[in-house]
Amino acid sequence: MNKIEIKKELEKAVDSVITDLDNLSKEEFYLQKNGKWSAAQNMAHLTLGAKVFRKALRAPKLALIFKFGINLKAQRNTEWIEETYGTSEFPAVTGFEPRMHENSSLEFEKEQFLKVHAELIQLLDNWTEWQLNTLRLPQLILGKLSIREMCLFFIFHIKHHQKAIRKSIDKV
């Protein structure tokens, strides 16, 4: 998937989540079922992850190379990401647990989610196709990924949590 396709898929995934939240009541948004995260907690988790990735995309590229090295492997695809993520064991604490803001509301969480993801998508304009393949970042479950693979992970991750949101609001 090239950069333009990645940006479109990220936008589509973000828009789809927001659409699922339209006409949702406050009670539905914060309701936890069977010990699973609420829609609000899923949104906060996705926003937190995007903030961290956004920070990395803003970092000097040379600093990323020194800190995380370069990718010399062939690019892995979405199928690899889905399969590896689906069969991985997760640590009890990841640091990406939802952190609900004191001003949390459906509108606030949607606004934060949209803002952070829009900035992340825009930052991809500063990256060449070569840089997307060559520079890399650590991902807690999947190990070191190229920036392109990290983008594919974010598309997958948004869709993964969208399924959880739909279950929490009975849209499945």
Rank of each mutant, 00 (worst) to 15 (best):
M43K: 05
A39S: 11
H45G: 07
A63V: 13
R58K: 14
N23S: 05
R58A: 08
L72K: 09
V17F: 06
K51L: 12
N42I: 12
K26L: 03
K55E: 15
W37K: 05
K33R: 15
M43A: 12
L31F: 04
Y30R: 05
K61L: 14
A44P: 04
F66N: 09
A50F: 01
S38I: 01
F53S: 09
G35V: 09
I65V: 14
D20P: 04
S25F: 00
L31I: 06
L24S: 03
F66A: 11
E27N: 12
D20M: 08
N71E: 05
F53K: 07
I70Y: 07
V17T: 09
A44M: 02
T19G: 14
F66L: 13
L62I: 15
F66E: 09
F29N: 00
L24I: 10
N23Y: 03
L48I: 06
K26F: 01
A50L: 04
K61Q: 15
Q32E: 13
Y30L: 08
K55C: 09
T47E: 09
R54L: 15
Q32V: 06
R54Q: 07
A39M: 04
R58S: 08
Q32C: 07
A63R: 05
K55F: 07
A59W: 10
K33I: 11
R58P: 01
S38V: 01
Q41C: 07
D20Q: 10
G49S: 09
L24C: 13
G69C: 13
R54V: 09
L48N: 05
L64Q: 07
G69L: 11
V17R: 03
L31S: 11
D15S: 15
L31G: 00
A40Q: 11
N34I: 08
T19R: 14
N42H: 12
N23P: 01
R54K: 15
M43Q: 03
F29A: 00
K61E: 12
I70V: 11
T19P: 03
A50G: 10
K33H: 10
L21K: 02
F53M: 13
K55H: 07
G49Y: 04
L57S: 06
K33M: 13
K61V: 06
W37V: 12
I65Y: 05
N23D: 14
G69D: 01
N34K: 15
N34Y: 14
N71R: 01
F68E: 05
R54W: 15
E28C: 00
D20V: 11
A59F: 14
K51M: 15
K51N: 13
D15V: 02
A40M: 06
T19L: 12
A56C: 02
R58I: 10
A63Q: 10
T19M: 11
G49D: 06
M43H: 11
G69S: 10
F29C: 00
T19H: 10
T19A: 14
P60R: 11
